[in-house]
Design a protein around this nucleic acid. Sequence first.
DNA 1: AAGCCTGCCAACCGCGGAGCG
DNA 2: ACGCTCCGCGGTTGGCAGGCT
Length: 259
Amino acid sequence: MVRPPSIDSSGMKKGAWSEDEDEKLRAYIHRYGHWNWRLLPKYAGLKRCGKSCRLRWVNYLKPGVKRGDFSKEEKEIVVKLHAELGNKWSAIAEQLPGRTDNEIKNFWHTRIERRRKKSPAAKPTISKANSLSTPQNQQQSLSLPILDDASLSPNSSHQDELELMLSAVLEAHDSAQNECFAAAAAAAAAAAAFNEEEFDYPELRSSELSCSGSSYSWTVDDDATSSYYVAQAEEEGLLLSYDPLLRFFDYQNETGLFW
DNA sequence: AAGCCTGCCAACCGCGGAGCG
DNA sequence: ACGCTCCGCGGTTGGCAGGCT
């Protein structure tokens, strides 16, 4: 998991830190502080560059640095702050005591961002889990339209994506003959449009909507992300039982998003 | 069992900004 | 105003571990 130790041309050690090096750095900083990162390694007896020492201290040795999985609350904060601040990892880290910018950045790229790169199915699809029983009482689930990145040209806009999603939503409406079912799909699609300016949030594409009677629930494979977007959608008044499909169309007209 | 693939994360690198002479 | 040094930030890389085929 770590880079093997090596010596560069200037005699500086690179790669994974040994316990001995950690102890030297920790002991030095405890005693003298880090008054000058560039000179510190010389006085601390380390064959490392100042940058490497600083990174090791800040991300690993500094007291209070948290290790391990992010809690649900922490995930929610990361998702929310990233939506507000973008890739300002240090700013996000300030709101998460014990978490470093590097850790948050890694968390984002591995847990959140990677879903953007998953290759979905070949064309927009809608699936229903259960076609038995009466529409109003049955339990149904819906996969949001899955858009194939490869089916969009390199110049495809998010608008193209949204249009594809909308066409699939309409298909669902036609085939389901179930207002709630289609409404849920429309609400989710609209929420997706609302929640991501650039509309590139595949978590939403692969989310699951389940519908029972007049209510429905919406989940994605990450609780924190799910609850955040549901909360956002509720704030926007999208998750209404009364024909959110129409509200979705109204929104399109009002904003001229793609008409 | 072995090779391949993917996820994860520590660490490196380059750049830009702040501070100082 | 300018140049230099240092620090911090964000992007990227490298390689281990574990899962998959």
